[in-house]
Amino acid sequence: MRDLGPFLARGRQAHEGLMGEQVRLYRQGEDVFDRDTGQTAPGPQTDLYGPGPARVKALAQATGTEEQAGERELSLRDYEVALPWSAPLPPDTRVLPGDRIKVLSSADARMVGLILYVKAAQYGGTATAWRISAEDRS
């Protein structure tokens, strides 16, 4: 069997060249209720990656679905987010459904500020990038 190391290294380097966005992957803590003020505040955020390079791509075959959330219509659109294969995670941490990815910068200014919700993370030793399935819930 051939040593795949050199081929994978070139593929990973080429894939990183396509990563035109800067993103932040984070976990949102549970909301906190303040009994004194009667207000609910967002919980703390834990950074998992970034800011760092990524490729954020809307999936062409996904048409999106309309969902009802309370009294509001919600459109769900699928995205694939590719991070560098070597992107570090904090020790003993795995990306979980519900974690969030915020687009910090992009050549497409309409994407800046977009928050995507992680659906699944794909791992693989022969991948050229670390791919995360996510959805836009706007």
Results as ranks from 00 to 15, higher is better:
residue 1 M to E: 11
residue 1 M to L: 11
residue 2 R to H: 10
residue 2 R to A: 10
residue 10 R to Q: 10
residue 12 R to S: 04
residue 12 R to H: 03
residue 13 Q to D: 13
residue 16 E to C: 11
residue 17 G to C: 01
residue 19 M to K: 06
residue 20 G to R: 08
residue 20 G to Y: 07
residue 21 E to S: 02
residue 22 Q to M: 09
residue 24 R to K: 11
residue 30 E to C: 02
residue 33 F to H: 14
residue 36 D to G: 12
residue 38 G to S: 06
residue 39 Q to G: 06
residue 40 T to V: 13
residue 42 P to F: 07
residue 43 G to E: 05
residue 44 P to F: 09
residue 44 P to L: 07
residue 47 D to K: 06
residue 47 D to H: 05
residue 50 G to W: 00
residue 52 G to K: 04
residue 52 G to W: 04
residue 53 P to Q: 08
residue 55 R to S: 14
residue 56 V to S: 00
residue 57 K to S: 14
residue 64 G to V: 02
residue 65 T to N: 15
residue 67 E to W: 15
residue 70 G to A: 12
residue 70 G to Q: 11
residue 70 G to C: 14
residue 71 E to M: 13
residue 72 R to H: 12
residue 73 E to W: 15
residue 73 E to P: 12
residue 74 L to N: 11
residue 75 S to M: 15
residue 78 D to W: 06
residue 78 D to Q: 09
residue 78 D to I: 01
residue 80 E to W: 08
residue 81 V to R: 01
residue 83 L to S: 03
residue 85 W to I: 15
residue 87 A to G: 03
residue 88 P to M: 06
residue 91 P to F: 10
residue 93 T to Q: 11
residue 95 V to W: 00
residue 101 I to A: 04
residue 101 I to Y: 02
residue 102 K to G: 04
residue 103 V to K: 00
residue 106 S to Y: 00
residue 106 S to R: 01
residue 107 A to K: 14
residue 112 V to R: 01
residue 115 I to C: 03
residue 116 L to R: 04
residue 117 Y to M: 07
residue 120 A to M: 09
residue 123 Y to A: 14
residue 125 G to H: 06
residue 125 G to R: 07
residue 128 T to K: 03
residue 131 R to F: 13
residue 132 I to Q: 01
residue 133 S to L: 15
residue 134 A to P: 00
residue 136 D to A: 10
